[in-house]
Amino acid sequence: MVLTRRRAIAAGAALFLALPWAAHAAPVTADDACGRAVAAAERAERAYEADKKELQGRIADGGHPDRSELQALAETEAKRDRTASQAQRVCGPGPVG
Rank of each mutant, 00 (worst) to 15 (best):
H64W: 03
A72V: 03
A60E: 13
S68N: 12
G57V: 11
D61G: 14
H64C: 01
I59D: 02
L55V: 06
D51P: 01
R43I: 05
K53E: 12
P65R: 08
E45Q: 11
Q56P: 00
G57N: 13
A44I: 10
A41V: 02
A40P: 01
A72G: 10
A41C: 03
R58E: 10
R46A: 15
Q56Y: 06
E45T: 15
K52H: 15
A44H: 02
D51N: 15
E54K: 04
A40D: 14
R43V: 04
E54C: 02
R58S: 09
Y48F: 15
G62P: 11
E69C: 01
K53S: 12
R67P: 04
H64D: 06
G62T: 07
D66K: 08
L70F: 01
A40E: 15
R67I: 06
E49H: 13
A47E: 06
D51Y: 09
D61M: 12
A39M: 04
G57S: 14
E54M: 10
R43G: 08
H64R: 14
R43S: 08
E45A: 14
R43E: 14
E49C: 05
K53W: 04
K52T: 11
S68R: 10
H64T: 13
Q56K: 09
L55H: 00
E69P: 01
E54Y: 02
A60T: 07
G62N: 10
A72L: 06
R46P: 00
R46Q: 14
E49S: 11
L73K: 13
A72Q: 08
E54T: 12
Y48E: 12
A72K: 07
Y48T: 02
A39L: 13
K52S: 11
A39F: 07
R58D: 05
E45P: 00
S68T: 11
D51Q: 06
S68A: 11
A39D: 07
G62L: 01
A47T: 08
E49A: 15
L73C: 12
A47P: 03
A47Q: 05
A50I: 12
R46L: 12
A40C: 04
E69H: 03
L73Y: 09
E42Y: 01
A60G: 13
L70I: 09
A41E: 03
L55C: 00
A41T: 01
Y48D: 07
K52E: 12
L70E: 13
S68W: 09
Q71V: 03
S68G: 03
A39W: 01
H64N: 08
A41K: 00
D66I: 03
D61T: 02
A72R: 02
G63E: 04
R46W: 07
G63T: 06
L55K: 00
Q71T: 09
E54L: 15
E49R: 15
S68D: 12
Q56D: 14
